[in-house]
């Protein structure tokens, strides 16, 4: 009897949904075939279905804007009957705030949204909701309810956020929180590929965005317990390229500080992160030219 009780509880999930609200992405018709309102209705239906599956399920929505990110909805603190209304109202407030902040900047192209910020917020929220159990997590290796993060992301990666995003990914890995990613844009996202690969989440770039709900419910609606038994999309290839710390460029090959593992695209005399002075071996002219020759032209 007791065995049965334990088996039933473990599909309770805490789902953090990160919504990309980058206005430059959604307003460009080239970048996606889905309109923002359609996107929201798919997501709302998905949130409803997650909350339907178990009454202990909790959903928190975080909007990832261009300049800021914020909590938009938390199912544990809102009444069940006005879910959509509450969410949309908060969403509007958020978009207005985001717009006000952006007037100071000029943007060329689609720009990128603040993924690192919202990832960190999601992790904070997960750890806060389990703050009593933190010690237990490191002992037994599982949180209750089981948390996971779902990134619904469209904007291209911002190489400038590389360090922050990677730090968020590693702390998610350490607290055993899988990051699922659903890419809505045209291009694959190297950040999210790495995030899902490292944390054991699912990375998917849907072919038909009209059927987004079906993708969401089939793949991303799966609780962690059932994942052990179901066929889910497997990673095809992961783009492991890193950004350099000095110019924030994505690079295939570069220099690494042997003390703190910081990455640079050019040779420096001193590491800008930890301050260690590099020896002569690196300044050796032949080896640098060697490296340059090896670099594949991509």
């Amino acid at each position: 009897m007791l065995v049965c009780l334990c088996n039933c509880t473990d599909d309770v999930s805490l789902l953090m949904v990160l919504l990309d609200t980058n206005p430059f992405f959604w307003s460009t018709s080239k970048s996606t075939s889905l309109s923002f309102s359609n996107f929201l209705s798919h997501v709302l239906a998905f949130l409803n279905s997650v909350l339907l599956l178990n009454q202990f399920n909790q959903v928190v929505v975080i909007a990832t804007g261009f300049n800021t990110c914020d909590y938009v909805y938390d199912s544990s603190s809102s009444p069940t009957n006005q879910r959509a209304e509450t969410l949309l109202r908060k969403f509007e407030e958020f978009v207005v705030k985001d717009e006000q902040l952006s007037k100071e900047d000029t943007v060329d192209g689609i720009g990128n949204s603040l993924l690192s910020g919202s990832l960190s917020m999601a992790l904070c929220c997960i750890l806060k909701s389990n703050s009593n159990d933190i010690q237990r997590v490191f002992r037994s290796g599982s949180l209750h309810p089981q948390p996971r993060i779902l990134c619904l992301h469209g904007s291209p990666d911002g190489p400038g956020q590389y360090v922050a995003v990677m730090n968020a990914i590693f702390s998610a890995q350490r607290s055993m929180v899988p990051i699922d990613s659903c890419v809505l844009g045209v291009q694959h996202s190297a950040f999210l590929q790495q995030a899902s690969y490292i944390t054991g989440g699912v990375y998917l770039k849907p072919q038909q965005l009209d059927g987004l709900f079906q993708y969401l419910s089939t793949v991303f609606g799966t609780d962690l317990h059932s994942r052990r038994f179901l066929q889910l999309p497997k990673p095809v290839g992961v783009d492991f390229r890193a950004s350099c710390f000095c110019h924030k460029n994505t690079i295939d090959m570069g220099y690494i500080c042997s003390v703190c593992l910081s990455i640079f695209c050019k040779h420096h005399k001193k590491c800008s992160t930890c301050g260690s002075v590099f020896g002569q071996a690196q300044t050796n002219a032949p080896s640098t030219s060697n490296q340059k020759r090896k670099t594949p032209d991509t």
Partner: peptide, 21 residues
């Protein structure tokens, strides 16, 4: 319907959701 769905084993819930449309 809601109560019964919630009482199902996790995998069964998943199938219902998947076949909903």
């Amino acid at each position: 319907c809601e109560a019964i769905l919630r009482s199902l084993p996790p995998l069964a819930k998943k199938y219902v959701l998947q076949m909903l449309y």
